[in-house]
């Protein structure tokens, strides 16, 4: 049996038990009436919901098929886990991530804080390293050991730079 909201009669989705001055008070409310009463249970930004809405749009459907060629995840996989696969995803999925970032960060989409001393020159090198590490994984998986050694040497060179 579904419990009705004690305020408006719609289906209640929120059930609260409060102890006020030793009296136990049970409340059954729908989301709308609960909001009006000032009762909120959503603590976190509903990330999944934001993404869901995004993917309903025409542009969103196109974005769903985007795939990062470095770490291999596509936008749908990100949506399921809520976690990105590598730093390069911020570039690959930039368009799709923008609305999400703006929702999560009060409209902001540009970093204004601290910058690591080594910033500038490292972005290019880091992306190169990412790509090489992914190639190394593939080379080992397909037993191309000579190629793997070459890639490993190149990684070592880049790491020292």
């Amino acid at each position: 049996m579904k419990i009705k909201c004690q305020k408006c009669g719609k289906e209640a989705t929120l059930h609260v038990t409060e102890i006020v001055q030793g009296q136990k008070i049970e409340k059954h409310l729908c989301q709308h009436c609960a909001n009006q009463e000032g009762i909120t249970i959503q603590v976190q930004m509903p990330l999944a919901q934001v993404l869901e809405e995004l993917l309903q749009t025409a542009a969103g459907r196109e974005l769903a098929n985007l795939r990062c060629d470095v770490c291999g995840i596509n936008f749908l996989e990100f949506r399921q886990k809520g976690l990105l696969g590598c730093p390069n995803d911020y570039t690959v999925f930039e368009q799709a991530l923008m609305p999400l970032l703006e929702r999560a960060h009060e409209g902001a989409s540009q970093h204004v804080g601290r910058v690591p001393g080594s910033a500038g020159e490292t972005e290019r090198r880091q992306n190169e390293l990412l790509r090489l590490r992914s190639e190394l994984k593939d080379a080992v998986a397909s037993e191309q050991y000579e190629r793997a050694v070459q890639i490993r040497d190149r990684i070592k060179e880049l790491e020292v730079e």
Binding site: L84, P87, L101, H111, R114, V115, G120, E123
Partner: peptide, 14 residues
């Protein structure tokens, strides 16, 4: 991992 646009890059964009 850092980008001048997005700052310190994290696994979760939040």
């Amino acid at each position: 991992a850092f980008s001048s646009r997005f700052g310190y890059l994290t696994a979760c964009p939040t």
